[in-house]
Amino acid sequence: MNVSPGVGDVLAEVDFELAQGIVARPELRRAIRDIRRLHEKNRHAVFGPGAGAGDEASANGPSPAELRSALRRQFQVDDMILAVLGEAVTAAEESRKEARRLAALVREALAEMPDDGEGAPPEVPAESAPAGSRIGRAVLGALSRGKDGPRGDDPLDGVEDEEPDAEQDVEWAIRPERLQVAMDPRDPGLPLVGSLFGRFRNALHSRVLIYTGHLGEKQTEVNQVLGDHLLRAISSLRRQHASIDALRLRVARVERRLAEALGRGDGGRAEKD
């Protein structure tokens, strides 16, 4: 049923945006995609078909200059990951502050409320949660189960994650096998000396691959550390998001109860709904 929104809906939307505005950071996901793209480009430049072609050292695989260049680019990728990580941490800190602020508002409102002996959270229909906030509804559900009801440690328990891309992107990008490089046997196409030349070239390639493998291992370690931090930051963001949603709902509930109480108590004007 398509019902026209009222001013109460608009104000609820304002509160929702206030609560989640700080943690919604689409640029983080964009940045992760950019990093992945550059990472791929770098890998392709070093290990892809035709890498080193035209260079004087092409017969021996990537030359030292090319490896040096690859290293430079890899450091650049690291810098970018660090930048995203920094931004994620900043976002998490900001959302924590916002959560604290909301919690203070809830405490303030509760302190002003007359004690009506209602300990249990009221039942709020899922429709009243802001559109698209499934996390919020899940939290609401958890709250509705009451103090003694089953509740996991994580308010996200049982919630289907709507936006798994960020974690998947990171996990995919830092898998060790992504940095493994296979030998690329190719027939040199030369008569008589072809097989001899091929063996010689493979020997050289395998030597280069040993060092490239070492480089890859080191880089994998770095990537995994960075990725772990990034995943932790993203997970922390989601938890903050959920707790802000929960607090927002509590604020709405408290405000409604306050308005009802005032309406009953002193004849004041209850919030128009």
Binding site: R30, A31, D34, I35, L38, F75, V84, G86
Partner: peptide, 15 residues
């Protein structure tokens, strides 16, 4: 923000 325009436009690989 920190995650804005990565890699930044311009010369140089170290930012």
């Amino acid at each position: 923000g920190w995650a804005d325009s990565l890699p930044p436009p311009g010369a140089g690989s170290r930012w």
